[in-house]
Computed example of a mutant assay.
Amino acid sequence: MTETREKLIEIKNLKKYFPLKSSMFKKEKQVVKAVDDVSFHIFKGETFGLVGESGCGKSTLGRTLNRLYEPTAGEIIFDGHDIASLNNKELQPYQKRMQMIFQDPYSSLNPYMNVEEIIDEPLEIHTKLSKNERREIIIDILEKVGLKKEDMEKFPHEFSGGQRQRIGIARALAINPDFILCDEAISALDVSIQAQVINMLEDLQSELNLTYLFVAHDLSMVRHISDRIGVMYLGKMVEISKSDELYNKPLHPYTQALLSAIPIPDPIKAKNNNREIITGELPSPIEMEKGCPFRSRCPFAKAICAEAEPQMKQIDNNHSVACHLY
Protein backbone atom coordinates (compact mmCIF):
# COMPACT_ATOMS: atom_id res chain seq x y z
CA MET A 1 0.00 0.00 0.00
CA THR A 2 1.72 3.18 -1.13
CA GLU A 3 1.17 6.88 -0.75
CA THR A 4 -0.04 7.12 -4.36
CA ARG A 5 -3.43 5.75 -3.28
CA GLU A 6 -6.23 8.27 -2.97
CA LYS A 7 -6.98 9.46 0.55
CA LEU A 8 -10.59 9.60 1.70
CA ILE A 9 -9.83 11.05 5.13
CA GLU A 10 -6.85 13.06 6.35
CA ILE A 11 -6.54 14.16 9.96
CA LYS A 12 -4.15 17.01 10.73
CA ASN A 13 -3.18 17.97 14.30
CA LEU A 14 -6.59 16.98 15.65
CA LYS A 15 -7.35 17.81 19.28
CA LYS A 16 -10.34 17.08 21.48
CA TYR A 17 -10.17 18.45 25.02
CA PHE A 18 -12.90 18.02 27.63
CA PRO A 19 -13.07 20.84 30.22
CA LEU A 20 -13.38 19.94 33.89
CA LYS A 21 -15.44 21.83 36.42
CA SER A 22 -13.26 24.11 38.53
CA SER A 23 -13.28 23.52 42.28
CA MET A 24 -12.87 25.87 45.20
CA PHE A 25 -9.27 24.66 45.55
CA LYS A 26 -8.28 24.97 41.89
CA LYS A 27 -9.64 28.04 40.16
CA GLU A 28 -7.74 27.58 36.90
CA LYS A 29 -9.52 25.74 34.12
CA GLN A 30 -8.37 22.17 33.59
CA VAL A 31 -8.95 19.92 30.61
CA VAL A 32 -8.68 16.24 29.80
CA LYS A 33 -6.68 15.90 26.59
CA ALA A 34 -8.56 12.92 25.16
CA VAL A 35 -7.11 13.45 21.66
CA ASP A 36 -3.96 15.52 21.52
CA ASP A 37 -2.41 16.64 18.23
CA VAL A 38 -3.10 13.48 16.21
CA SER A 39 -2.37 13.25 12.47
CA PHE A 40 -2.98 10.32 10.10
CA HIS A 41 -4.90 9.43 6.95
CA ILE A 42 -7.17 6.66 5.63
CA PHE A 43 -7.07 5.56 2.01
CA LYS A 44 -10.24 4.93 0.03
CA GLY A 45 -11.38 1.33 0.30
CA GLU A 46 -9.07 0.35 3.17
CA THR A 47 -9.64 -0.62 6.80
CA PHE A 48 -7.61 1.42 9.27
CA GLY A 49 -7.44 -0.28 12.67
CA LEU A 50 -7.10 1.79 15.84
CA VAL A 51 -5.91 0.08 19.02
CA GLY A 52 -4.79 0.95 22.53
CA GLU A 53 -5.68 0.53 26.18
CA SER A 54 -9.10 1.52 27.48
CA GLY A 55 -9.15 5.29 27.96
CA CYS A 56 -6.42 6.01 25.40
CA GLY A 57 -8.79 8.15 23.30
CA LYS A 58 -9.41 5.88 20.32
CA SER A 59 -13.23 6.03 20.50
CA THR A 60 -13.11 9.78 21.12
CA LEU A 61 -10.89 10.17 18.06
CA GLY A 62 -13.37 8.22 15.93
CA ARG A 63 -16.36 10.20 17.16
CA THR A 64 -14.55 13.51 16.67
CA LEU A 65 -13.63 12.45 13.15
CA ASN A 66 -17.32 11.75 12.49
CA ARG A 67 -18.20 15.11 14.06
CA LEU A 68 -20.27 13.50 16.83
CA TYR A 69 -17.90 15.48 19.07
CA GLU A 70 -16.85 19.01 18.22
CA PRO A 71 -13.08 19.16 17.66
CA THR A 72 -11.08 21.52 19.86
CA ALA A 73 -8.55 22.18 17.08
CA GLY A 74 -7.15 20.67 13.91
CA GLU A 75 -8.38 19.67 10.47
CA ILE A 76 -10.66 16.83 9.37
CA ILE A 77 -10.33 16.60 5.60
CA PHE A 78 -12.99 14.34 4.10
CA ASP A 79 -12.71 13.76 0.36
CA GLY A 80 -10.78 17.01 -0.05
CA HIS A 81 -12.99 19.20 2.17
CA ASP A 82 -12.19 20.34 5.70
CA ILE A 83 -15.32 19.52 7.73
CA ALA A 84 -13.89 20.38 11.16
CA SER A 85 -15.56 23.80 11.42
CA LEU A 86 -18.74 23.27 9.38
CA ASN A 87 -22.09 24.03 11.01
CA ASN A 88 -24.90 21.47 11.13
CA LYS A 89 -26.44 22.55 7.84
CA GLU A 90 -23.12 22.58 5.99
CA LEU A 91 -22.20 19.23 7.53
CA GLN A 92 -25.35 17.35 6.49
CA PRO A 93 -24.14 16.22 3.01
CA TYR A 94 -21.01 14.75 4.64
CA GLN A 95 -22.92 13.11 7.49
CA LYS A 96 -24.80 11.12 4.89
CA ARG A 97 -21.48 9.72 3.65
CA MET A 98 -20.10 9.00 7.14
CA GLN A 99 -21.96 6.45 9.26
CA MET A 100 -21.25 4.56 12.47
CA ILE A 101 -21.70 1.08 13.95
CA PHE A 102 -21.95 1.34 17.73
CA GLN A 103 -20.43 -0.95 20.33
CA ASP A 104 -23.57 -2.01 22.18
CA PRO A 105 -26.19 -3.68 19.96
CA TYR A 106 -28.68 -3.48 22.82
CA SER A 107 -28.67 0.24 23.65
CA SER A 108 -27.98 1.51 20.10
CA LEU A 109 -31.40 0.41 18.78
CA ASN A 110 -34.67 2.09 19.75
CA PRO A 111 -36.73 -0.62 21.52
CA TYR A 112 -40.00 1.06 20.49
CA MET A 113 -39.25 0.89 16.75
CA ASN A 114 -39.39 -2.22 14.59
CA VAL A 115 -36.60 -3.15 12.18
CA GLU A 116 -38.20 -1.42 9.21
CA GLU A 117 -38.60 1.82 11.14
CA ILE A 118 -35.02 1.67 12.47
CA ILE A 119 -33.47 1.27 9.01
CA ASP A 120 -35.96 3.62 7.38
CA GLU A 121 -35.11 6.54 9.69
CA PRO A 122 -31.84 7.61 7.96
CA LEU A 123 -33.44 7.03 4.55
CA GLU A 124 -36.31 9.33 5.44
CA ILE A 125 -33.94 12.02 6.72
CA HIS A 126 -31.34 11.95 3.94
CA THR A 127 -33.31 10.97 0.82
CA LYS A 128 -36.46 11.99 -1.03
CA LEU A 129 -37.49 8.45 -1.92
CA SER A 130 -41.07 7.25 -1.60
CA LYS A 131 -42.16 4.85 1.13
CA ASN A 132 -42.27 1.92 -1.33
CA GLU A 133 -38.81 2.75 -2.72
CA ARG A 134 -37.37 2.92 0.77
CA ARG A 135 -39.01 -0.40 1.65
CA GLU A 136 -37.33 -2.11 -1.32
CA ILE A 137 -33.95 -0.75 -0.20
CA ILE A 138 -34.55 -2.04 3.34
CA ILE A 139 -35.40 -5.54 2.07
CA ASP A 140 -32.21 -5.59 -0.03
CA ILE A 141 -30.03 -4.40 2.86
CA LEU A 142 -31.49 -6.98 5.26
CA GLU A 143 -30.54 -9.73 2.81
CA LYS A 144 -27.01 -8.32 2.58
CA VAL A 145 -26.54 -8.57 6.36
CA GLY A 146 -28.02 -12.06 6.64
CA LEU A 147 -31.54 -11.22 7.83
CA LYS A 148 -34.92 -11.90 6.20
CA LYS A 149 -37.75 -9.79 4.85
CA GLU A 150 -39.98 -11.23 7.59
CA ASP A 151 -37.72 -9.63 10.22
CA MET A 152 -38.88 -6.14 9.24
CA GLU A 153 -41.89 -6.23 11.54
CA LYS A 154 -39.97 -7.51 14.58
CA PHE A 155 -38.63 -5.40 17.45
CA PRO A 156 -35.04 -5.43 18.82
CA HIS A 157 -35.90 -7.54 21.88
CA GLU A 158 -36.85 -10.42 19.57
CA PHE A 159 -33.26 -10.80 18.27
CA SER A 160 -29.98 -12.12 19.65
CA GLY A 161 -26.99 -9.82 20.19
CA GLY A 162 -25.40 -10.79 16.89
CA GLN A 163 -28.65 -10.22 15.00
CA ARG A 164 -29.08 -6.82 16.65
CA GLN A 165 -25.62 -5.83 15.52
CA ARG A 166 -26.57 -6.88 11.98
CA ILE A 167 -29.54 -4.52 12.23
CA GLY A 168 -27.15 -1.75 13.32
CA ILE A 169 -24.93 -2.51 10.33
CA ALA A 170 -27.97 -2.45 8.03
CA ARG A 171 -28.92 0.97 9.40
CA ALA A 172 -25.40 2.27 8.74
CA LEU A 173 -25.54 0.95 5.15
CA ALA A 174 -29.02 2.30 4.39
CA ILE A 175 -27.95 5.59 2.78
CA ASN A 176 -25.01 4.13 0.86
CA PRO A 177 -22.12 5.74 2.82
CA ASP A 178 -18.49 5.92 1.77
CA PHE A 179 -17.04 5.67 5.29
CA ILE A 180 -18.11 3.70 8.38
CA LEU A 181 -16.71 4.08 11.88
CA CYS A 182 -16.82 0.68 13.60
CA ASP A 183 -16.55 1.67 17.26
CA GLU A 184 -15.82 -1.57 19.16
CA ALA A 185 -18.44 -3.10 16.86
CA ILE A 186 -17.74 -6.71 17.89
CA SER A 187 -16.57 -6.44 21.50
CA ALA A 188 -20.04 -7.12 22.98
CA LEU A 189 -20.56 -10.26 20.89
CA ASP A 190 -19.69 -13.92 21.47
CA VAL A 191 -16.40 -15.03 19.90
CA SER A 192 -18.11 -17.27 17.32
CA ILE A 193 -20.43 -14.41 16.31
CA GLN A 194 -17.50 -11.98 16.11
CA ALA A 195 -15.93 -13.99 13.29
CA GLN A 196 -19.22 -14.04 11.37
CA VAL A 197 -19.64 -10.27 11.68
CA ILE A 198 -16.02 -9.60 10.67
CA ASN A 199 -16.37 -11.77 7.58
CA MET A 200 -19.61 -10.01 6.68
CA LEU A 201 -17.98 -6.58 7.07
CA GLU A 202 -15.17 -7.65 4.74
CA ASP A 203 -17.65 -8.94 2.15
CA LEU A 204 -19.66 -5.70 2.33
CA GLN A 205 -16.49 -3.64 1.98
CA SER A 206 -15.52 -5.50 -1.17
CA GLU A 207 -19.03 -5.30 -2.64
CA LEU A 208 -19.79 -1.66 -1.77
CA ASN A 209 -16.25 -0.18 -1.83
CA LEU A 210 -16.50 0.94 1.80
CA THR A 211 -13.79 2.53 3.92
CA TYR A 212 -13.60 1.55 7.61
CA LEU A 213 -12.07 2.99 10.75
CA PHE A 214 -12.08 -0.08 12.98
CA VAL A 215 -11.70 0.82 16.66
CA ALA A 216 -11.07 -2.20 18.90
CA HIS A 217 -9.04 -3.65 21.75
CA ASP A 218 -8.97 -7.22 20.38
CA LEU A 219 -5.55 -7.12 18.74
CA SER A 220 -5.87 -10.47 16.95
CA MET A 221 -9.17 -9.47 15.34
CA VAL A 222 -7.76 -6.07 14.34
CA ARG A 223 -4.90 -7.79 12.55
CA HIS A 224 -7.34 -9.96 10.62
CA ILE A 225 -9.48 -7.12 9.25
CA SER A 226 -7.09 -4.15 9.00
CA ASP A 227 -4.84 -3.03 6.15
CA ARG A 228 -2.99 -0.54 8.37
CA ILE A 229 -3.06 -0.01 12.14
CA GLY A 230 -2.55 3.00 14.39
CA VAL A 231 -1.59 2.60 18.06
CA MET A 232 -2.78 5.23 20.55
CA TYR A 233 -1.50 6.02 24.03
CA LEU A 234 -2.95 8.76 26.27
CA GLY A 235 -4.45 10.70 23.39
CA LYS A 236 -1.35 10.42 21.20
CA MET A 237 -0.70 8.35 18.09
CA VAL A 238 2.57 6.51 18.80
CA GLU A 239 2.88 4.12 15.85
CA ILE A 240 1.32 3.56 12.40
CA SER A 241 2.15 0.62 10.18
CA LYS A 242 0.83 -1.96 7.75
CA SER A 243 -0.93 -4.68 9.71
CA ASP A 244 1.49 -7.58 9.23
CA GLU A 245 4.56 -5.41 9.69
CA LEU A 246 3.25 -4.02 12.98
CA TYR A 247 2.71 -7.51 14.38
CA ASN A 248 5.97 -8.92 13.03
CA LYS A 249 8.16 -5.90 13.80
CA PRO A 250 6.63 -3.55 16.42
CA LEU A 251 8.89 -0.56 17.08
CA HIS A 252 7.37 1.40 19.97
CA PRO A 253 7.88 -0.18 23.43
CA TYR A 254 4.17 0.32 24.15
CA THR A 255 3.19 -1.55 20.97
CA GLN A 256 5.59 -4.35 21.88
CA ALA A 257 3.98 -4.68 25.31
CA LEU A 258 0.46 -4.69 23.85
CA LEU A 259 1.29 -7.45 21.39
CA SER A 260 3.04 -9.44 24.09
CA ALA A 261 -0.22 -9.47 26.08
CA ILE A 262 -2.17 -11.30 23.34
CA PRO A 263 -3.23 -14.70 24.77
CA ILE A 264 -1.54 -17.75 23.24
CA PRO A 265 -3.89 -20.75 22.80
CA ASP A 266 -1.07 -23.30 23.15
CA PRO A 267 -0.33 -23.78 26.92
CA ILE A 268 3.25 -24.95 26.31
CA LYS A 269 4.09 -21.95 24.13
CA ALA A 270 2.27 -19.66 26.55
CA LYS A 271 4.38 -20.96 29.45
CA ASN A 272 7.63 -20.31 27.56
CA ASN A 273 6.53 -16.91 26.30
CA ASN A 274 8.39 -13.99 27.86
CA ARG A 275 5.66 -11.41 28.25
CA GLU A 276 6.60 -7.76 28.44
CA ILE A 277 4.58 -6.54 31.41
CA ILE A 278 3.95 -2.79 31.52
CA THR A 279 4.91 -1.47 34.95
CA GLY A 280 5.19 2.01 36.44
CA GLU A 281 2.71 4.82 37.03
CA LEU A 282 0.17 5.88 34.41
CA PRO A 283 0.46 9.68 33.93
CA SER A 284 -2.57 11.86 34.57
CA PRO A 285 -4.34 12.91 31.36
CA ILE A 286 -5.12 16.24 33.09
CA GLU A 287 -1.68 17.37 34.21
CA MET A 288 0.64 16.00 31.56
CA GLU A 289 4.31 16.72 32.11
CA LYS A 290 6.69 17.53 29.29
CA GLY A 291 8.50 14.77 27.50
CA CYS A 292 7.29 11.36 26.35
CA PRO A 293 4.00 10.38 28.03
CA PHE A 294 5.07 6.71 28.11
CA ARG A 295 8.45 7.28 29.78
CA SER A 296 7.24 6.46 33.33
CA ARG A 297 6.33 2.95 32.14
CA CYS A 298 9.03 2.42 29.52
CA PRO A 299 11.98 0.09 30.28
CA PHE A 300 14.12 1.88 27.67
CA ALA A 301 13.53 5.49 28.80
CA LYS A 302 16.51 7.84 28.41
CA ALA A 303 17.22 11.35 29.65
CA ILE A 304 15.87 12.94 26.47
CA CYS A 305 12.51 11.21 27.05
CA ALA A 306 11.91 13.51 30.03
CA GLU A 307 12.96 16.62 28.13
CA ALA A 308 11.20 16.47 24.77
CA GLU A 309 8.08 14.83 23.39
CA PRO A 310 8.97 12.49 20.51
CA GLN A 311 7.55 13.40 17.12
CA MET A 312 6.22 10.91 14.58
CA LYS A 313 9.08 9.75 12.33
CA GLN A 314 8.71 7.79 9.13
CA ILE A 315 10.97 4.74 9.35
CA ASP A 316 10.06 3.46 5.89
CA ASN A 317 7.23 3.90 3.37
CA ASN A 318 4.73 1.99 5.51
CA HIS A 319 5.93 2.44 9.10
CA SER A 320 6.03 5.50 11.37
CA VAL A 321 6.76 5.74 15.11
CA ALA A 322 6.95 8.46 17.76
CA CYS A 323 9.87 7.35 19.93
CA HIS A 324 13.34 8.72 20.80
CA LEU A 325 14.83 5.25 20.27
CA TYR A 326 14.57 5.78 16.49
Score class of each variant (00 low, 15 high):
G57K: 08
R297H: 04
L325H: 03
S206N: 11
Q205T: 11
R171C: 01
E136Y: 02
L213A: 08
M221A: 12
M98R: 09
I141W: 03
R297Y: 04
I240K: 05
M232T: 03
P310F: 08
M113V: 12
S241W: 01
L246A: 12
P111C: 12
H126Q: 09
T279V: 09
I198V: 09
D151S: 08
R297K: 04
L201D: 06
K58F: 02
N209I: 10
N209K: 15
I11M: 00
E90N: 07
E116R: 12
V51N: 01
D316I: 11
G230S: 11
I76T: 00
A170Y: 03
E3K: 14
I83W: 04
L173A: 02
I193Q: 06
H126F: 14
C182D: 13
P283E: 05
R275F: 05
E70Y: 13
I118Y: 04
E70T: 15
H319K: 02
R97I: 04
D104Q: 04
M98H: 10
E46Y: 06
S296A: 15
D227R: 10
A84K: 10
L14H: 07
N176R: 09
P285M: 07
V35L: 02
S107I: 04
C182H: 11
N199I: 05
E46S: 14
A188N: 12
Q99A: 05
A172H: 00
R5V: 08
Q95T: 15
A270R: 13
V222L: 00
P283A: 12
E53K: 11
G45W: 00
H319E: 11
H81M: 13
N88S: 09
Y94D: 07
I264Q: 14
N248E: 15
